[in-house]
């Protein structure tokens, strides 16, 4: 009896370990497979955080799953009628304290990491960011570059220079989201909100609206390009001056 209980407990630990391994594997694979290509410092941080948190969650989730599976396999009543009483265990201070301690430690770790990442995102690294004024309206984004006459429906950004987006709206609340840059902020009427990011990879990226804004919300997107600084300035000068 005692040995079979021990054996079943060993199978619980093994299930836990295997499920954790599967979880870690998924954590390493899924975000990289499915998240949009990271094109800024913030997006890289987002990806790392995603993977890290998933790895942290793996043993916790696996522990619960292994426990549930263990119950299903070894503590299911297979007879007829009402099951007989089980051992009347009401408490286990040891288990309780270790569970709470473990979850507290994980929480604190996640918090410390998150607060650090938040500080990293908020800290302005550059004293000379490129300023872009972003205007949301139903259902178009327009971008203007202070100091120039350029207004565009496409967002051009130079590589490796911090950009400060000053975001506002002409009508309702929109959600300005640089999909590949890992940052977003609401565009509110009569208010300017700002976000910073530093594009660090050349290519095309998506700008979408992520705050429901009426009839054609689903279509409120724009296309963006990260280009070399030289290309950026030639693009600026090639744009027609607008009213």
């Amino acid at each position: 009896m005692e040995t079979s209980a021990k054996k079943s407990l060993r199978s619980f630990y093994w299930t836990w370990v295997i499920l954790t391994a599967v979880g870690v594997g998924l954590s390493l694979w899924l975000p990289r497979r499915y998240m949009p290509a990271a094109m800024s410092n913030d997006a890289h941080l987002t990806m790392t955080t995603m993977i890290l948190f998933s790895i942290c969650a793996a043993p916790v989730a696996s522990g619960v799953y292994a426990g549930a599976l263990h119950v299903l396999r070894h503590h299911r009543y297979r007879g007829d009628g009402v099951p007989p009483p089980a051992p009347q265990i009401r408490e286990s201070t040891k288990l309780l304290t270790s569970w709470i301690t473990a979850s507290a430690i994980l929480t604190v770790f996640v918090l410390v990491w998150g607060l650090g990442a938040l500080a990293a995102e908020n800290g302005s690294s550059s004293s000379n960011p490129l300023v872009v004024n972003v205007t949301g309206q139903q259902w178009v984004w327009t971008f203007s570059y202070p100091g120039t006459h350029v207004v565009s429906d496409e967002l051009y950004l130079p590589e490796n220079r911090e950009v400060e987006f000053r975001v506002t709206s002409l009508d309702v609340t929109h959600g300005f989201w640089l999909v590949n840059m890992g940052v977003q902020v609401d565009a509110n009427p009569d208010v300017i909100t700002t976000i910073h990011t530093t594009p660090d990879k050349l290519g095309v990226f998506e700008v979408r609206c992520e705050q429901f804004c009426g009839l054609n919300h689903a279509f409120m997107d724009a296309v963006g390009y990260v280009v070399t600084p030289q290309k950026f300035s030639s693009w600026l000068s090639a744009q027609p001056a607008r009213a």
């Binding site: 549930a68 119950v71 503590h75 299911r76 009402v82 007989p84």
Partner: peptide, 30 residues
């Protein structure tokens, strides 16, 4: 707000402990 929010995972974790802990070593009637 991030701090307060993430603290939620501690009481939520206890829910799992209580549920699985109650079932553990029981005669679970399926």
């Amino acid at each position: 707000f991030m701090v307060t929010t993430e603290l939620i995972s501690i009481p939520t974790g206890i829910f799992f402990l209580v549920l699985v802990g109650t079932l553990w070593r029981g005669n679970v009637w399926m």
